[in-house]
């Protein structure tokens, strides 16, 4: 017996949902969704749970992560209830639920909190630069170590516990009993989905979106690798330098297209942008662009005279690494992949 909580939909609205209450449960959205199948019929079920405020059911469900938002459900919804956007909001809400620190929820719900966070970090970086007298070598050096440290810290203190939390909510708590072997054998899916987002190919819209996304993920991960482990900004290897240029170019070119679409709103999926979406694409764009320019300035030997550029790059990097990656939209990349992984485990266990 579940008790209805009509206030929940108001809570969801803070995460960007709207009009989901208009749903009259015709099931059109589920029927037009190419990713929906007999085992996971969505999005209507999620719309229904949201309207009824059945938080436990939503937390236990992986459905929101299985949706890759082609927008078909929303464009064909007879009530204009926008199930696609609801699924997006549920992903944000779930992110906030998984996050033990509570920052995710705060940042999603409050634009003010987000802006404050960004400002604080920017000031911190400037203060740090000030304390270093803006010495380029030191800054480059610490910047590099910051990256490594941040990755380690975010991954172990925030992301890992959150993933375990997600696992507990969606696998353990609903009573899935799976052996260790299953966890092992299903790992393949985790990696495949993490790097390829293969599932999005099942979406009905054009495959170009998937391709863009795919090269963005590859570009982003390889740039991360290139800067952190191959020390792009300090390397002398021509190959690595060119590789870095290429990767960062990919990032800002693709994200530029993403930003353009969000401004033009010509597709259903880019019609409704939450602040977290803007932060994600804009910061990714800035990261790609600034990285590119920093390296360019190094190569042109003008970075010394243009420290501001490096500071900007560092600010964006810090904000990205400490806000967007652990608490923002970046986590979707992780949760989605794990959702596919958990889903496989659940199927295998049954």
């Amino acid at each position: 017996m579940a008790r209805i909580n009509p206030e929940f939909s108001d809570e969801l609205k803070k995460y960007g949902a709207f009009d989901a209450n208009a749903c009259y449960n015709c099931g059109n959205c589920t029927a037009v969704c190419t990713l929906s199948d007999e085992d996971n019929s969505f999005p209507r079920k999620m719309v229904r749970y949201s309207v009824l405020g059945l938080e436990g059911e939503i937390q236990a469900s992986l459905d929101p992560w299985l949706c890759y938002y082609c927008g078909e459900c929303s464009t064909t919804c007879p009530r204009e209830a926008n199930p696609g956007e609801l699924m997006m909001s549920l992903r944000r809400w779930l992110t906030a639920q998984y996050d033990w620190t509570g920052f995710s929820g705060l940042l999603y719900k409050s634009l003010g909190a987000s802006v404050t966070g960004f400002l604080v970090l920017a000031l911190a970086v400037i203060a740090f630069g000030f304390s270093m007298d803006f010495r380029m070598a030191d800054l480059l050096h610490y910047g590099h170590y910051f990256e490594m440290g941040a990755i380690a810290l975010v991954a172990s203190v925030i992301l890992l516990p959150n993933i375990i939390h997600m696992w507990y909510q969606t696998v353990r708590k609903p009573g899935t009993e799976a052996g260790l072997k299953t966890y092992f054998t299903c790992l393949r899916d985790l990696l495949v989905h993490m790097f390829t987002q293969k599932r999005a190919l099942g979406c009905d819209d054009n495959q170009f979106r998937w391709f863009e996304h795919f090269i963005l993920v590859l570009g982003y991960l390889s740039l991360l690798f290139t800067t952190v482990f191959l020390d792009w900004f300090s390397t002398q290897s021509m190959f690595i330098i060119v590789l870095g240029y290429f990767e960062s170019a990919v990032i800002f070119v693709v994200t530029f297209d993403f930003v353009r679409r969000r401004i033009q709103k010509d597709h259903e999926i880019s019609k409704h942008s939450h602040s977290s979406d803007w932060f994600f694409v804009v910061w990714l764009f800035l990261m790609g662009l600034f990285s590119f320019l920093v390296r360019l300035f190094i190569d042109l030997n003008v970075l010394q005279q243009n420290m501001w550029l490096f500071m900007l790059q560092l600010i964006v990097l810090v904000q990205w690494a400490l806000l967007i990656v652990p608490f923002g939209k970046w986590t979707h990349f992780l949760y989605r992949s794990f959702a596919m992984y958990f889903q496989e485990i659940k199927l295998a266990a049954n």
Binding site: N25, C26, G27, N28, C29, T30, A31, V32, C33, S36, D37, E38, S41, R44, K45, T76, P78
Partner: peptide
């Protein structure tokens, strides 16, 4: 109970209707 989402055609001219069976909550 369920709105038909889309219809596709088979070779023999028969039609496949995709819908969510609302009472079961499952796409069919």
């Amino acid at each position: 109970k369920g709105k038909v989402g889309k219809i596709s055609e088979k070779e023999n001219g028969n039609l496949i209707l995709r819908y969510e069976d609302i009472e079961a909550g499952v796409v069919k």
